[in-house]
Simulated scan of single mutants.
Amino acid sequence: MKSAAAWVALVVASLPLFVAVSPVAQAEPHAPVIVTLGDSLTAGLGLPQSEAFPAQLQAVLKARGRDVTVIDAGVSGDTATAAAQRLDWALPDNADAVIVELGGNDALQGVPPEGTKAAIEKIIVSVQARGLPILLAGQEAPRNMGKEYVEAFSAIFRDLAERYDVIFYPFFLEGAALNAELMQPDGMHPNAKGVARIVENILPKVEELLARVAAKG
């Protein structure tokens, strides 16, 4: 029969083997954080925060089993240049992806398309330098700005999306614009139902954005 001391020695000797073959505890999966950088269309002007685009997008994603946090970094009245200037503090360190929705105020103010393009390009370059995938939502200029301006403005978003390989959604207000039932009385901002329509339409692109986040690991 082995002595008590021999049994203790045997158990101690086996500990390294036990540790080596024990399964490693798996870390909890990280819940992606999407930052929506935009103007009043993102901030939800005229709506309770619970009905704004970021909140409705997060709710729909969670309903689909996606544990995603959507942060509202929208500021009403922002031009692309103003958003570029606040980018450093608008993006938290835990951001995983960014939706860029800007340009509407530029068009309303008649900002030259090249100025808007330069500002959005600066944002894209800065966000990509952090290794974050981007979903760029395009805008359209009012038709009373003239055909040349409207075409040049529309081209901004497509050109930048192609140049920097970002996910592209041509028109943020698609499905809501010009529909009185989905827009607020000002005709420029969606109501709660309009935001729901926007979320529904843009959702496949958001899923594509999350796929890029997952691919990064």
Rank of each mutant, 00 (worst) to 15 (best):
I202N: 08
M1T: 11
V98W: 05
I71A: 06
A177N: 10
P16F: 10
R143F: 11
E121D: 07
G44R: 09
K117E: 10
D39E: 09
I71H: 01
N105E: 02
L10Q: 13
K205F: 12
F171A: 08
R197F: 01
G38D: 03
L41H: 03
F18N: 12
M188G: 00
R64S: 03
E51L: 01
I34P: 11
A95T: 07
Q109K: 15
E174F: 02
E28L: 06
E114Q: 15
V60Q: 11
G46V: 14
K117G: 02
K193D: 15
D88C: 04
D165C: 08
M1N: 08
P92L: 06
P16E: 11
G74Y: 02
E200P: 01
T69F: 07
F153W: 11
V100Y: 06
V12M: 09
V8R: 14
R143H: 08
R66Y: 04
P32N: 12
G103L: 06
I156G: 11
P29V: 06
Y164H: 15
I34W: 09
I202D: 02
A4D: 07
A155M: 01
D78T: 06
E51M: 06
I123V: 12
T81D: 12
P133M: 03
M1S: 15
L47E: 08
Y164R: 06
R66S: 04
Q184R: 09
N191W: 09
V100T: 10
K2A: 08
F171G: 12
Q139H: 00
V68F: 05
I71P: 00
E114I: 13
R163S: 10
V98S: 03
L47D: 14
V100G: 05
W89K: 08
L45Y: 15
A141F: 09
G104N: 05
G138F: 10
P113C: 11
